[in-house]
Computed example of a mutant assay.
Amino acid sequence: MSRLKGELIVTGNGNKRALAAMSGGVDSSAAVRLLLDQGYSCGGAVMKLASDEENDAVRDAGLAADRLGIDFYVFDFSAEFKEKVMDSFVNTYLSGGTPNPCVECNRYLKFGAFLDKARELGYEYIATGHYVRKEYCGESGRWLLKRAADRAKDQSYVLYSLTQDQLAHTIFPAGEKSKAEIRDIVAAGGLADPSKPESQDICFIPDGRYADFIIRRSGEQKKGEIRMSDGTYLGEHKGLINYTVGQRKGIGVSYSEPLFVIDKNISENILILGTKDELVCNSLIAGDVNYIPFDKPDKPFECTAQTRYHQREAECTVYPLENNCARVEFHSPHTAVSKGQAVVFYDGDYVVGGGTILG
C-alpha cells in the first residue's frame, strides 16, 4: 500500500487531537501508545527528508500506525531539509565550523514545518518521542523545558531553540519514562522491534563519511599547510573539512607531545595545531540566542552550560549582548568549544536557553 502522497490510512477517534512525528522506531511508536492511553485522538506522520532516501521509515511507521489504529500521513519535507539542514551543514563546515544538524532539523522541520502542517490538518498538538519534559509556570505564564527523567537519555540540548508557541503545542510522552519502559511498551503492543538500535550517525550521512559528503556537494578541497600556533610548519593537510577543533587522531603529523586541532585559518587554508592547554578557553560568543523562561534578560545571570551533547555542565555567567547575541564567561577553564556547535544554558534540570557558538 503506497503511503508516499500523504494519504489517510486509518481513522482514529477522541477529543484532544495530537499528531505524532513517527519514524518507525521505538520512541515515537511508544509515544503514540502513551497518548492514546491518555485519551488523545492521535494521528501519525512521517517526514520524508531526502528525495533519494529508502522508504524503511515510511514502511515501519505505517505498520505501527496500522496496529495503533490511527490516521497516518507522509509529509515530503525534502526541499526544506536540503535548504535548512543539509546545505547549512556543508556551509558551516566550509566556513571552518562544526555544525549540529539535529538542532537545525528540530528548529525548522520537526517543530516548524511539521507543526504548521499539523495545524492545517486540524490538530491542536504535535508529539515527538524526544526524552525531555515541559512544565507550565503560572507565575510567569510561560512554558518551561526540562531535562528527561532518565538523565542518560536526555535530549534537551538539541531543543533549546523551542519557542513558547512550539512548547505550548507540543507533547513529550517519553519524557517521564526510562528507555527500558519505552521498549516494554512497544514490545507489548507489537509496534516496533524493541531491540532496534538507535541511530548514532547523522541521518543523511549514515556511513559517517562527512568529508566525502561535503566534497560531493561542493567539490574537491584544496590541500594546505599544517602549522603550530606559533607558525612552525608541520606538514600538509588533506583539506580543512577533514578536521574538527579538538581532534587529535588522524592528523598525520608526529611531535614530541600530543597535538590537537585548535583552529582553522580559512582564508589562508591553514590547519592550526596546538597542545591540550591551548584548547582551553575562558569565554565564548553565541549568536541567535533563544531564552525560554523569559524574554531577553536585562542583566547578566549565572547558570551552567554545555557546549557539546551529553557533556558535563560548566558553571558560567551569561552576558546578554545586542543583535540577539550573548557572551558566556566560564568560571573555570573550559574545553570542547567549537564554532557552529550549540551552547545551552541550564538552571538545574531546566533549560534557560542557548545559541550557536560564533567564536
Rank of each mutant, 00 (worst) to 15 (best):
G122H: 00
L273P: 03
S51Q: 15
T244P: 00
V261H: 00
L115D: 03
A113I: 11
Y309W: 08
K82V: 09
V85Y: 09
D263F: 10
C42V: 04
C203T: 11
G14T: 07
S29W: 07
P99I: 08
S254G: 08
D298C: 14
I262M: 02
I185C: 02
V337P: 02
M86R: 07
E322D: 13
D71E: 14
D295I: 15
G62K: 00
A30H: 05
Y108S: 08
L63R: 10
G62W: 03
L68I: 06
F294M: 12
S283T: 06
R209E: 14
E257I: 09
E315Y: 14
E198I: 08
R308H: 14
D87K: 05
A314N: 07
Q341Y: 12
G353F: 10
G359P: 00
I357M: 13
V344R: 02
N290A: 13
G190N: 12
R142K: 11
D71M: 04
S23Y: 02
K179T: 11
Y136H: 12
E120D: 06
A152I: 14
V103N: 00
S229I: 14
L159Q: 02
G122T: 00
K5F: 15
K179D: 10
S283V: 01
M47V: 06
N100A: 12
G287C: 07
K84C: 13
G208M: 15
R248E: 13
F72V: 04
T128P: 00
F172E: 03
A30E: 00
S254C: 11
E83L: 07
G14P: 03
E135L: 09
E54Y: 13
E53M: 12
F213G: 02
S51T: 12
D27G: 05
G122F: 01
R133P: 04
I171R: 05
R327D: 03
R217M: 07
Q311M: 09
P258A: 03
P197D: 04
E124S: 08
Q38H: 10
A18D: 00
F294I: 11
N106R: 08
S199R: 15
P99D: 06
N324A: 09
R3G: 06
V32I: 06
H169T: 01
G246I: 14
P333V: 05
R327M: 08
K134M: 05
K223G: 13
S140G: 11
A57T: 09
Q155A: 10
K238D: 14
I202N: 03
V46H: 12
